[in-house]
Amino acid sequence: MSVWKNLGEHSVYENPWLRVHLADVELPDGRHLDHYVLRQRPVALATTVNEWNEALLLWRHRFITDSWGWELAAGVVEAGEDLEAAAAREMLEETGWRPGPLHHLLTVEPSNGLADGRHHVYWSETAEYVGHPEDAFESERREWVPLGEVPNLVAKGEIRSANAVAALLLLHHLRVT
């Protein structure tokens, strides 16, 4: 079995969202490689799929890639916070909707060749509108998008983030097909 071995690493940069480490990696043939690794806090995401098979999504701009797209409410999990509680908190803060009982949908590693970040996606079948979102600045708008449109939106590049693509295609499969 060809296994890369991490023989140790040290921090070269840290901030509240991530740490950049330099790892001494031994390749299967015995050679060594210096490899940068991003160590990240877990991310929790949530959406609701209503009785009409519409998912609550955010339309937002990402300055890093200078792109617009549909995404799920998401954010980092605070120290000591339960993943499901974090997902519910993020959905309420970013959409103004409080989700009903959440179900774990999937966990993805969006960039596991560079980072250890895990994104934990939850969904509910009900939600209660509480009011204008506390973090409304994070998105241009919040809408109920039919799951039936998801494959086309992914193909057109209107759903771009890996976690949203994976989650919404799986929800489409589970609820529509």
Rank of each mutant, 00 (worst) to 15 (best):
G157V: 02
W4C: 05
E51N: 04
S139R: 13
E125D: 13
I64Y: 14
T47A: 03
F63W: 14
L169Q: 14
G100Q: 03
S67E: 15
L170G: 07
A164Y: 02
P146Q: 08
L38N: 10
R19Y: 02
S67T: 15
G80N: 03
E125Q: 14
V49Q: 00
D34F: 09
R39D: 05
T65Q: 12
V176R: 01
S67C: 11
E26I: 00
R175H: 13
R175A: 07
H35V: 10
W97G: 06
N112P: 15
E143P: 03
W123G: 01
A55E: 00
N50H: 02
M1V: 12
E9Q: 11
H119Q: 10
A167N: 02
P110K: 02
D24F: 10
H10G: 13
A79K: 09
A86V: 10
V20L: 15
R89M: 06
A115W: 06
L174H: 04
R31T: 13
D34H: 11
K5P: 03
E149K: 12
A127W: 01
G75R: 02
G117S: 11
E9K: 11
T65W: 05
L174M: 11
V49M: 03
A79L: 09
E81I: 07
E81A: 10
E54F: 00
L58I: 04
W70M: 04
A55L: 04
H103F: 10
A88E: 09
L153C: 05
P110E: 08
G113N: 07
R31K: 12
P101E: 14
R60A: 02
G148N: 07
T126W: 01
L22E: 15
E90D: 08
H120M: 00
S11N: 09
P110S: 11
L92N: 02
V12G: 05
E134T: 13
L168R: 10
S67D: 15
L170Q: 15
L171T: 10
L72G: 05
Y36K: 04
A73V: 11
K156C: 08
N53Y: 00
M91Q: 15
L22V: 14
W70T: 07
A155F: 07
G30Y: 09
R160Q: 12
L83V: 04
E93P: 00
L83Y: 13
R160I: 09
L45V: 11
L58F: 01
V3T: 10
P28Q: 07
L27W: 06
R141M: 12
V43Q: 08
Y122E: 05
N50T: 02
L171R: 11
E94Q: 15
R142F: 00
S111F: 13
N15H: 01
R19V: 15
L171K: 07
G148V: 05
G75S: 06
N163I: 03
A167Q: 03
N163T: 12
G30L: 09
L58T: 05
L169D: 05
E134L: 14
H119L: 06
E26L: 04
L106E: 14
L168F: 05
V145M: 05
R62Y: 14
L147A: 04
V108A: 07
N15C: 15
W97K: 09
E14F: 01
E143M: 10
N163L: 09
H21Q: 13
D24P: 00
G113S: 11
T177K: 12
